[in-house]
Amino acid sequence: MTTEDLSTKAQQQAAAAPSRRTVLCTAGLAGAGVMALGACGAAQDAANSAASSASDAATGALKDAVSKATIPEGGGKVFPDQKVVVTQPTAGEFKAFTAVCTHQGCVVSDVANGTINCGCHGSKFDITTGAVKAGPAKEPLPEKKVTVGTDGITVS
Rank of each mutant, 00 (worst) to 15 (best):
T147W: 03
V108Q: 06
I116N: 04
A14F: 08
L37A: 14
G75L: 04
V146M: 06
T98N: 08
P140F: 07
A96E: 03
E143D: 11
G149T: 15
T129L: 04
G92C: 05
G76P: 11
R20K: 14
V34A: 12
D110A: 11
S52Q: 15
T128V: 06
G75W: 05
H103N: 09
L6G: 12
L37H: 02
V148Q: 03
V85S: 02
K63P: 01
A69G: 04
A43R: 13
L141H: 06
G38P: 07
A112L: 02
T154I: 07
V100T: 15
C106G: 13
S52K: 14
M1C: 14
L62K: 00
S49C: 10
D45T: 13
V155A: 07
A50V: 06
V84I: 10
D64Y: 00
G38Y: 09
A69K: 14
T128Q: 15
V66I: 11
F125K: 02
A65R: 01
S55E: 14
G92Q: 02
S55G: 08
F79T: 04
L29N: 08
A57V: 04
K77C: 05
N48H: 10
G60T: 01
A16R: 08
G119E: 09
G76C: 10
A47H: 09
D45F: 13
G41H: 14
S55W: 09
I153G: 02
Q88H: 03
D5V: 09
A46G: 11
K63M: 07
S53F: 04
S109P: 03
T147D: 13
T98A: 11
A15V: 02
V132I: 11
T8R: 06
P140V: 13
I153K: 03
Q11P: 00
A36D: 12
C118F: 04
D151A: 03
L24G: 06
A43T: 10
A46E: 09
C118Y: 03
Q82E: 13
C120A: 12
T3G: 00
I71V: 12
A96P: 00
G60I: 01
H103R: 07
Q82F: 01
V86F: 00
P72L: 13
A47I: 12
Q104R: 09
T98W: 01
A61S: 09
Q13T: 02
G135V: 11
A32W: 03
G135K: 07
A137T: 15
A42T: 14
E4W: 00
T2S: 04
A99W: 06
I153S: 07
T3R: 04
V34Y: 05
Q104V: 12
A32L: 14
A65T: 00
